[in-house]
Amino acid sequence: MTSPIELDDLECEFKEEVLDKVPDALLDRCMTCGTCTGGCPASGLMDMDPRKLLRMVNLGMDDEVKKSKWAWVCTMCARCVNACPMKINIPKLIYNMRGAWPRDKRPKGIRGSCDQHIRAGNAMGVPTDDFIWTVEDVAEEIREDQPQFKDMQVSVDRVGAYMAINQNSREPVTEPDEMGPLWKILHLVGADWTYPSVMWAGENYCLFLADEEGWRYIMEEFVDHVDNTLGCKVVVNTE
């Protein structure tokens, strides 16, 4: 016969672990209203949804929670917490579920992009010299082919530029011509800008991988370069 769950005897180690790190995730407050689940595009995928997941966390079903692949299907889009009447931060729970996976068991594609970013400064792993060469080559082509932009300046690491601009690494690698339109706009408004050569890419796969150390390292390197080497006043995110 099924016996009632003794709430006093429940051990919810994973919940406590997450709440230690992010007390404002408020995982205890769920009233099971299901507003999160009603508005979540990942509801029902892999037979999981945000409300169910939170129930499992609050019932101490740590093994099932920690091995649920749904952590990688949820995109941490935050529509749930945006709608939650108790402001429970499910994306932070998901982030910590991802972080609970052994690093080498996390999805290869995301891990690879994070590793490349740490190593090369961008998720596609382009060497800095190749990035600079591509930028200069595309700029030269525009200057030659489009007389209106014959004076267009594009630079990497120009010390003292007002703005440092990041660029998703997909552009220089797979569709370099897509950089041109942005440069032309910057040229027309007379923007004083440069690309940083260190951690120049706009993407952030270490966040997605829940690699706290890697993410922090990328940020520290970037801040140090922009502040202390280039002295840019503004960092512009292009996506």
């Binding site: 990688w72 594609g109 796969y205």
Partner: peptide, 8 residues
């Protein structure tokens, strides 16, 4: 959230 690279 990395879904494009996540493999699912």
């Amino acid at each position: 959230g990395g879904a494009l690279q996540g493999g699912f």
